[in-house]
Amino acid sequence: MSHPSAIEAGHHTDYTGAKIGMWLFLFTELLLFGGLFLLYAVFRSKNADAFHEAAAHLDIMLGTFNTLILLTSSLTVVLSLEAARAGNRRRALILLTATIAMGFFFLVNKFFEWGAKIDHGIYPGSPDLLSMEKGEALFYSLYYAMTGLHGLHVVAGMAILAWMIRPLLRSSQTGPQAYVGLENGALYWHFVDIIWIFLFPLFYLIS
């Protein structure tokens, strides 16, 4: 198969191969989070009332706000890729920077949210947590483990997207297969968004 844009760029690239690689990686990530979702499902089925009780203490406003931030950042990254491929690198850079900034705001909110919980003596291994009913302790442990792992993924996503600023500054490519690195970075970012789409109702909305 021939890729006109790759030939114009003067080097060989396997566009489809690059994307398959990214998707395969995302499947390993899916199974990583899948294990935690499975843990959540089993413990919740055994401690349904305690999970509902504990979830009532999470800040729905903050959770909703963070959901809106991540959904909007998914829009900006996909528009950034579109702008880059249309040859509008300035617009692409602005949108990409906005995406990374929204990831940062998400983490700032998480910081305040976790901070408030820790101030109330609820953190992994705390005396308050250990004295709680088993189901509630499990809920908060899973809350920290799952939103924590998700937070790490947000940090990684920000780093990957920041790295993709470089090719945007360096060279102008256009066409549907240009900037496959940015496309793969965006795929990762959307994946992180999807994980949050499930974390949000399971932790904030079941009370």
Binding site: V78, H190, D193, I194, I197, F198, F200, P201, L202, I206
Partner: peptide
């Protein structure tokens, strides 16, 4: 919970399909 998961699946499908 079931309703929330169904809505979340719709959202995930939109992100997967388009974004």
């Amino acid at each position: 919970v079931l309703i929330a998961l169904i809505i979340a699946s719709f959202k995930a499908a939109l992100v997967l399909d388009y974004f």
